[in-house]
């Protein structure tokens, strides 16, 4: 019976593994009777993810019985699930598109859009680049538009060196790419294709930091963490050169590259106290939670306005 003995041994190991895991799960079930319980399901943009994570973390501390999950399928992926009715809240780094809103309407999903934070898209070069310090939105467009004729820095401005301009930007699935192409090239998704693309902004940081004649764009938080290895360019949209910084992003003068980050809330889900509680918690605490994630908070008044929108939607 050697075979049976060994089989038992295998079975016991598997059972033990599962049991060990079940034991670990036990302490998560403890719940406070006055606090909220139930599921809140969130998915969407990976850019907004740190904000949602911060809110979920604190909400979970205040309501140990609640089960909040946050995914990062991307803005588009999040809306797909949101309009299929699978999730309660969708995070997005761009406003909902017409086609997505139609899908929501067709499925009977009503929602409220809330802004939760500001992000400043930063245009970056290598610190060894001494000639460029400010680009106009027109120049950015000439560089990044489809069929762009720009191949060297001299093509951008005649006094700049005739060195090849090497471009780095987020991949086509990201909301950052959609936003940048929309405000710079005039059409979401329209971009020259010959640039180094990565969904991971840290790769873009590495690329620009190691390439003397590089030009790239990505979220301000990634510049702020790597400021010593990168050079931040100002952007001139007709009112002089403005560099992204806490104040210029928050007051909107760093235009057009400051963008709001959104949260979309399903009305039907607001009827559930845990979802309503989560959204209220987010708006109440955003002012102190958002800065810890590397993004910029809106004004207290704007969050209060969001609260009124939710109250109105929830009362229906």
């Amino acid at each position: 019976m050697t075979f049976r003995g060994s089989f038992m041994c295998t079975a016991i190991i598997v059972t033990l593994a599962l049991a060990a895991c079940g034991g670990e799960a036990g302490d998560a079930g403890a719940s406070n009777s006055s606090a909220l319980s139930g599921r809140v399901e969130i998915d969407g943009s990976s850019t907004v993810f740190p904000v949602a994570e911060a809110v979920a973390e604190e909400f979970q501390v205040a309501n140990p019985g609640a089960r909040v999950t946050v995914g990062f399928s991307g803005s588009g992926g999040g809306f797909k699930r949101f309009c299929a009715g699978e999730i309660d809240i969708a995070n997005a780094s761009r406003p909902i598109k017409g086609s997505e809103a139609e899908a929501c309407a067709a499925a009977g999903v009503e929602f409220t859009e809330l802004s939760v934070a500001w992000d400043g898209l930063s245009v970056i070069t290598n610190p060894a680049n001494e000639f460029a310090s400010c680009l106009t939105t027109g120049e950015l467009r000439r560089i990044w538009e489809p069929n762009s004729a720009v191949t060297t820095w001299r093509d951008v401005r005649s006094e700049w060196p005739a060195e090849e301009i090497r471009l780095y930007g987020p991949g086509t699935d990201s909301g950052t790419f959609d936003y940048f192409t929309e405000v710079i090239n005039g059409e979401s998704g329209a971009s020259r294709p010959d640039f180094q693309a990565s969904e991971d902004d840290n790769i873009l940081v590495q690329g620009v930091a190691g390439d003397r004649f590089a030009l790239g764009y990505f979220g301000y938080a990634y510049y702020a963490e790597n400021a010593s290895r990168l050079k931040l360019l100002s952007v001139d949209s007709g009112n002089g050169c403005v560099a992204p910084a806490d104040d210029t992003i928050e007051d909107g003068s760093y235009a057009p590259l400051s963008r709001p980050l959104f949260v979309y809330v399903k009305h039907a889900a607001l009827a559930r106290p845990e979802v309503r509680g989560y959204v209220d918690f987010m708006l109440e605490h955003a002012l102190e939670l958002v800065p810890s994630t590397g993004y910029h908070a809106l004004s207290a008044e704007q969050y209060a306005e969001g609260g009124r929108l939710i109250a109105a939607a929830g009362a229906r």
């Binding site: 990976s46 993810f49 946050v70 995914g71």
Partner: peptide, 12 residues
């Protein structure tokens, strides 16, 4: 198939 990024409970 829906593994999530943030989750603050262990599966039961």
């Amino acid at each position: 198939v829906g593994a999530v990024g943030f989750i603050a409970f262990t599966p039961e």
